[in-house]
Design a protein around this nucleic acid. Structure first.
Lengths: 143, 143
DNA sequence: CCAGTGTGCTAGCAATAGTTAGCACTTTGC
DNA sequence: GCAAAGTGCTAACTATTGCTAGCACACTGG
């Protein structure tokens, strides 16, 4: 079964989209209705046969509670560090949806990752690619 | 001269777009070339006659060094504090010091926090049955 | 005065986004 | 066993995107 993507990148978007949808336990029709598009069309987007318009993509992202920009990035359409090079610390601290403790925890984890990588790099340089599907999906204990 | 906006919101996007372009001292053709679209088309977008596709909008935003999400928000298409806690996601995804798996983990934790708070705030469990029992420390040690 | 180049805009066409109607398959309940 | 309602997909059509060619106006400098 060959994959019939219209143009490389779109397939990735569709895959990510579907992944997010199923993870949200939404049926194709449900998401389609929430996003205000027809279900066949959403189906085609997920299979990479169509490229959604800006408005449609926005609606879908909204329905999935994710950023459209993130959708682009994850789909490989937009390079992560183009004009949007916001620092993680600032973004986290400025987030109004997090408590102070949560911010602290998040930044601790972030710092740990960076430290870990720094140590790694010292030992074995030249690491860049990995097919990461690290689904932690953890509901942590109360913060 | 009838006001010829295709649909309310688009006009706003066009206005903001033009504002950004002139502010960057770019001619219509210059921006069009940088964004990889034709100048007549860009013109039409600015006047609210056409709604650009997701890809085109992204290219334009990139050429203007602004976020497409910002474009949406400023144009009034997307409400600022909607589903878009996006800046954290963007910052994390754009961080070159993290591996993909680490980004995923971090964002999962972040999402968990948000979900937790949302549930709290609404005082409505609205639970969707979380399978994972992992914990921050687990996510950490395993990267 | 008029070629040359810059600006943005209009017209008309080709490609494709997004639609409604309906098929095939699976599960649920009577 | 089979209606009913769920899932996703195909097909044919309309509406819109985004293109190329070219116009009208302003500003240069020869």
């Amino acid at each position: 079964m060959v994959k019939a993507t219209v143009s490389g990148t779109v397939g990735a978007l569709g895959d990510y989209l579907k992944e997010q949808r199923t993870q949200s336990r939404l049926s194709l029709r449900q998401l389609a209705e929430q996003a205000g598009v027809s279900n066949p069309y959403l189906s085609q987007i997920e299979r990479g046969l169509r490229k959604p318009s800006a408005e449609v993509l926005q609606q879908i992202a909204k329905a999935l509670r994710i950023s459209a920009e993130q959708l682009y990035i994850r789909a490989g359409i937009l390079s992560p560090d183009d004009g949007v090079g916001g620092s993680v610390e600032l973004a986290v601290l400025g987030d109004t949806g997090l408590t102070e403790r949560q911010k602290q925890s998040l930044l601790d984890v972030y710092a740990s990752f960076l430290a870990l990588n720094a140590a790694d790099e010292a030992l074995a340089p030249a690491d860049s690619d990995e097919p990461g599907e690290a689904d932690v999906s953890t509901a942590l204990s109360d913060q």
